[in-house]
Design a binder for these strands. Structure first.
Length: 220
DNA sequence: ACCACGATGAACT
DNA sequence: GTTCATCGTGGTC
């Protein structure tokens, strides 16, 4: 069984698999749909020392826009928090939510246009024991099935805000595992499109995407 | 300076 | 199904 761990010693291969800026530099919904099945990787704070990292498949996400999206942080223009959504696509946007949780987004759309994809559900692949440690023991099915849970499992905090997701030297990045055949490819017919969760305004838009029947969806 | 509220999760009934 | 802890952000005064 091939492992993601082996990729770290083959930077050329890793550079091929990592999602490029052009992947993010487009419509947020299109990017959200295509992010399903891609693999999120975070290096731990001890990565250099202990080679610790976490990897998981993105199985649920949501698209957010700018001025025309009442649910978006960017709906009223750029603020100190939301200005990152207008800036470089392929950047991590991490914010603090409900006094307890960090939520991870990937910035999309070309520079100057607001857009982001909220990562809501991940299927754990590697580094699972580290995820359990960070989440303080739980059942596997509850480890990463929610936007706040998965950031905790993957060690994603405020210091991840603004990190370049397209750089293999970053502590967080996203790769396409298809070429490696590391894990089964998702079937396009299994992508479900629904309304977004936890918002008041803009709830009618179908901007939530997830992989049908996956065990790590946040809500049915 | 003040204050209402939230792109949640956990613990309840 | 419901309630609630918790605090940064942004709007208002």
């Amino acid at each position: 069984m091939p492992e993601i761990r082996n990729l770290f010693s083959d930077k050329a291969k890793l550079g091929k698999l990592i999602l490029k800026r052009s992947f993010y530099e487009r419509d947020a919904s299109a990017a959200a749909r295509d992010l399903l099945g891609k693999i999120l990787i975070t290096k731990s704070e001890n990565f250099e020392l202990k080679d610790e990292f976490c990897a998981g498949k993105i199985v649920e996400d949501e698209a957010y826009y700018g001025l025309n999206d009442p649910a978006s942080h960017a709906c009223k223009g750029a603020t100190p928090r939301s200005k990152i959504m207008f800036e470089t696509p392929g950047t991590a946007y991490v914010y603090f939510c409900y006094g307890n949780h960090f939520l991870l987004n990937a910035v999309t759309e070309k520079y100057g246009i607001a857009g982001a994809v909220l990562i809501r559900g991940i299927e754990p692949l590697e580094g699972i024991s580290l995820m359990f440690k960070r989440r303080e023991a739980d059942m596997l099915k509850n480890l990463t099935n929610g936007p706040g849970k998965l950031t905790k499992a993957f060690g994603i905090g405020k210091n991840f805000n603004g990190i370049d997701l397209t750089d293999i030297n970053s502590s967080i990045f996203i790769i396409d595992g298809k070429e490696l055949r590391l894990y089964p490819e998702i079937n396009k017919n299994d992508i479900v499109k629904k309304s977004r969760i936890g918002i008041k305004n803009g709830a009618e838009s179908l901007l939530r995407f997830y992989i049908k029947n996956n065990k790590f969806i946040s809500k049915k």
